[in-house]
């Protein structure tokens, strides 16, 4: 623990503090200030108090986007963690090419979200359509042109991208499970399934929390994949919160209103993150 807080302590800290306050604290404060005005991006007219905030809660579009985001997040979290854990179990088992497989599974995560969106757009709209037309499968045609296919398109894209990342976290925990415990269980006659459920799962439980909140905050703040894959279409039904806020600000030019939405969004994300920290800390104590 560093206790001596003399001049050099603050001087060393200063670059970071200055940078942090310039790019995080000041804009945040300004943003909150703007959300109480009728700012149009050019000049501040007058204070409007909580008017923007009241309007947000009557804004059907914002609520629809929020609801869509929540639905998307829940489904994605379950699927990403399921696939992530499955992949981790595969590559930690005794198969030969596990090192290579790890790299391959992790790779989608290295591609930028925008590009991934366009790649998958191609797959959904051309490849799916091609296969669908060829074999006469109607379910594969016209993807991304309905709300449902747009939703599942986004879920598939996110699962594919993030499963590898989450896999790495699970691998770390899985490899720290003591082999003698598993051997003991084996000798006691536990089946592979029982070993998984009663020995391995409890020991990798902390990984669940970490992964869950990582995926949660990632899917909740999603913007680029959303933009490039569906663009919110059809008729804004696959539009998520970040995109809704961006559109309010830069398409409809209601900057102060968008700012109010952003503040509310910030609060939601902050609550989620703080809950994560709280639960993690609690678990650490229990361990």
């Amino acid at each position: 623990m560093l206790r001596t807080r003399d001049l050099s302590y603050w001087l060393f800290l200063a670059p970071v503090l200055i940078a942090l306050s310039l790019v995080v604290v000041v804009p945040l404060g300004l943003g909150v200030y703007y959300s109480f005005t009728d700012w149009n991006g050019i000049e501040v007219g007058s204070f409007v108090g909580f008017e923007n905030y009241i309007n947000v809660f009557q804004d059907e579009e914002f609520m629809a986007a929020l609801w869509f985001t929540v639905k998307f997040s829940i489904v994605s979290i379950i699927l990403i963690n399921f696939f992530g854990l499955s992949l981790a179990l595969i590559v930690t088992s005794k198969i030969k090419s596990s090192k290579l497989l790890r790299t391959i599974f992790f790779m989608p995560n290295l591609i930028g979200g925008l590009i991934l969106g366009f790649i998958w757009q191609f797959i959904f709209m051309k490849v799916f359509d091609g296969i669908g037309t060829h074999f006469g499968i109607e379910n594969l045609q016209g993807w991304l042109s309905t709300t449902e296919t747009g939703f599942w398109g986004l879920v598939i894209l996110m699962s594919w991208q993030m499963a590898g990342y989450i896999m790495v976290i699970y691998i770390a925990y899985l490899e720290s499970v003591p082999t003698e415990l598993i051997e003991a269980a084996e000798i006691d006659g536990a089946s592979p399934f029982q070993r998984l459920v009663y020995i391995i799962f409890p020991l990798v439980a902390p990984a669940f929390t970490v992964s869950m909140f990582l995926t949660l905050s990632n899917t909740f703040k999603l913007y680029d994949q959303n933009l490039s894959l569906t663009g919110g279409g059809p008729y804004k039904s696959t539009q998520m919160v970040s995109m809704e806020i961006f559109k309010t600000a830069f398409v409809e030019s209601e900057l102060s209103y968008a700012q109010a939405k952003a503040v509310i969004f910030f609060l939601i994300v902050a609550v989620i993150s703080l809950t994560q920290v709280y639960i993690n800390k609690k678990r650490e104590v229990e361990m």
Partner: peptide, 20 residues
């Protein structure tokens, strides 16, 4: 009105085209 053409009418037309 700002954004009306694209964000309102255009979007409603999408809804119309989807049959919703």
């Amino acid at each position: 009105p700002t954004g009306w053409g694209q964000e309102e009418l255009g979007v409603q037309i999408q809804k119309y085209l989807s049959g919703d």
